[in-house]
Nucleic acid binder design. Structure first.
Lengths: 211, 211
DNA sequence: GAGGTATTTGTCACCAGGTGCCACTATTCG
DNA sequence: CGAATAGTGGCACCTGGTGACAAATACCTC
């Protein structure tokens, strides 16, 4: 909550920062691999003791997520700004697209980071613990719109479905770099929102770009 | 693939078994808690060395899953037995319900196990690594039905959505033991299959038992 | 400038999960 | 009996993660 820098300057100044550690760690992860990189390596490269590393990040896994929690605030704000006139389905689509909207120079970074999060088993597993906050935001929005409690079935099924859809899109985007993330995500959301009518005999699916 | 027992009886006979270790471990987990139970405890209780435990289960996490992989074979068979006349949506619903159909005497056991898998963070995280096989089965069925490749967007979004729905149902069932699992699951699947039309203004949602 | 206070850092010890290695044991087969 | 086979136990070791405590470095007050 400190806007400036001199608000609390008493005590020994920090030697490093979350950002620096993140940068060092990701560089090592990308070059050497996640498993092959030990916390000791990260700490030593950053010129810091192993113990200090764990004071900045609760676990080795968490480094790969960076400032995800802060990023979520934008997601929340996105939903809060949706006017009531917009339908729920449209709101979900727009907010999820907006949350995953990145500038061109951010994309290579994002790509590497997501490859880490989605391909390394340990991080893949850890992800569910980070995604709960994401799901909560969606569930609460759906709860507001439908009138059901956020913990009840409708908001939960929709929120978790939205997450599953986004992850599927990312996975597809990572594996085949044919279309920009936004397009893949948009296609995935379209499929998701039509989940009920998925029989190819009923038509309309060739246009959804399923491949 | 050994139907009998005497196929390969040479060598020192095993002192324990997966089943026995699972039973010992779950008992400890339920009474003492997952985190508070060490592998050493499990091994000692089973009268076996710590090293031997890891020859039966790759990790402490895996014990909680028991013979899940074997159970999946039934799931696969369920899909294989679906006649082409049955619509995809119906098939998905029926197969998922069948996969999660348990006899009354199995339910308390299931309840404890699922409480473990869905509430303990370490197991919750580990679950994604176990669920991929489940998703694969669903994705392949959808792929067969739609003509899209199993790795493409349509099968993936649907398979992951199905999983998300099932997990949401389990979570709800665990938290509020008002309705039997089958009913909660069925309600969740109904919501999922109508994901596109979720505006309460369009009606029809009060009957879906969202609470 | 001296001393107190606040904050971060480093070191150390320790625990738990997990793995590789090797000797040992118990069984069947010849 | 001895050889082959398969499971077990013990040991050393690595890695992630935590608690405790002393040392370091800043600011603030007198």
């Amino acid at each position: 909550m400190s806007s400036g820098r001199s608000v609390r300057a008493v005590g020994r100044p920090p030697v490093t920062s979350r950002t620096e550690l993140e940068h060092v760690a990701l560089t090592l992860f990308f070059t050497t691999g996640f498993e092959a990189t030990t916390v000791k390596d990260i700490a030593r490269t950053a010129g810091v003791s192993r113990r200090t590393f764990f004071r900045y990040y609760a676990s080795k896994n968490d480094v790969a997520w960076g400032e995800f929690d802060e990023h979520l605030a934008r997601f929340q704000a996105e939903f809060d700004a949706v006017p009531p006139s917009v339908s729920m389905a449209t709101a979900l689509r727009e907010c999820i697209l907006a949350f995953n909207d990145f500038t061109d120079d951010e994309v290579p970074w994002l790509r590497q980071r997501m490859a880490l999060l989605l391909r390394v088993p340990a991080l893949q597993a850890h992800s569910v613990l980070r995604y709960v906050a994401w799901c909560d935001i969606v569930a609460k929005f759906v709860a507001r719109r439908t009138g059901f409690g956020a913990g009840t079935l409708v908001p939960q099924v929709i929120a978790r479905g939205a997450l599953a859809t986004a992850v599927a899109a990312y996975e597809r985007w990572l594996e085949h770099d044919e279309a920009p993330l936004r397009e893949v995500l948009d296609a995935a959301l379209s499929i998701w929102l039509r989940t009920g009518s998925i029989s190819p005999a009923q038509g309309g699916w060739s246009s959804a770009r399923g491949g």
